[in-house]
Design a protein around this nucleic acid. Structure first.
Length: 290
DNA sequence: CTCCAGGGGTTCC
DNA sequence: GGAACCCATGGA
């Protein structure tokens, strides 16, 4: 087992907020997930810590740096939140809804495919499609037979759309294959995309069929850790447009559909706020317009 | 039955 | 450049 300082991270808030799709809730507030060929159980432990138990693949205690990086425990979120709270009253209210959300640093290819699947879709079905994808085409992990790695680009690239019919992903199957073929051909090298200027990396991603501004931003932020894609002032501007424009009735939807881009961690807090008001109710009011 | 869900492509003007 | 409409699924 590996113990890490949670540094304010809340597992449920972070793993449920719609940035990742390979964690499942278990008994007593525990979560089971697969990340980059490693299956672990995660739970909160006394002393403000997080406990990771290895289930398959490399043991977490053998590579604490990997998990610190994945959960972004190296970043000073309290300071970041203080900045956002000071800058925007409305955003402060959103942060208060889920202060334990952290932006995970997820594996790149998996993130790109996952957010291709997410388009015009809902979280339960996204999770189901990703699960079928991994079970059907991912490599079983050493340890127990219950866990599967996310399929590699090389595994997916030679397939035809008919081979992905079992996903029931609709038109997104073609997008998945195009992304896999480009990745397998070396056009989406992770290190290169990380080193490239932001605009270039974004343009490269958007060459993939089905990757528009939203999916590209999600891949940059969640999959490449390109925090420069979202300097805090940019988050502020986008969040401010959503939260402080009186005609905007639904800031979360506005960020997705109107601006064509997300607002980094700020968006996750805004979504958390929208969720807390009741997702099915379209009657919730813009917090800035009270 | 209709609506729509954390988009994007295509086709118009 | 923006608006309308299409795309497959499955749940509400």
């Amino acid at each position: 087992m590996l113990y890490l300082d949670a540094n304010g991270l809340d597992l449920a808030q972070t793993l449920q907020c719609g940035q990742c799709f390979r964690w499942q809730p278990g008994p007593a507030g525990s979560w089971t997930g697969v990340v980059a060929g490693r299956a672990v159980r995660a739970e909160h432990a006394p002393g403000g810590r997080i406990c990771l138990t290895g289930l398959a693949g490399p043991a977490p205690e053998a590579e604490p740096a990997f998990w610190v990086r994945y959960f972004a425990l190296d970043l000073d979120y309290p300071a970041l939140q203080a900045r956002m709270q000071a800058a925007h009253k409305g955003l402060a209210g959103c942060i208060a809804c889920a202060p334990g959300i952290r932006v995970l640093r997820q594996p790149f290819f998996e993130t790109l495919i996952t957010f291709l699947i997410s388009q015009n879709n809902n979280i339960p079905r996204i999770t189901g499609i990703v699960d079928r994808l991994c079970r059907g085409l991912g490599q079983p992990l050493e340890g127990e037979g219950r866990f599967f790695a996310f399929p590699t680009a090389e595994r997916l690239a030679p397939l035809a759309e008919a081979d992905l019919a079992f996903l029931r992903a609709g038109w997104r199957s073609g997008y998945i294959l195009d992304a896999a073929r480009r990745a397998a051909a070396g056009q989406l090298e992770e290190d290169a995309l990380r080193a490239m200027p932001l605009a270039g990396a974004r343009a490269r991603l958007m060459e993939v069929r089905g990757v528009g501004p939203k999916v590209a931003d999600c891949a940059l932020l969640y999959g490449l850790g390109r925090w420069d894609a979202y300097p805090v002032d940019v988050w502020m501007r986008r969040a401010g447009q959503a939260l402080f424009t009186r005609r905007v009735k639904d800031p979360a939807a506005y960020l997705n559909r109107k601006t064509g881009g997300c607002a980094g961690i700020a968006q996750q807090y805004i979504f958390a706020w929208a969720r807390s008001t009741g997702l099915t109710e379209k009657t919730h009011k813009n917090p800035a317009c009270d």
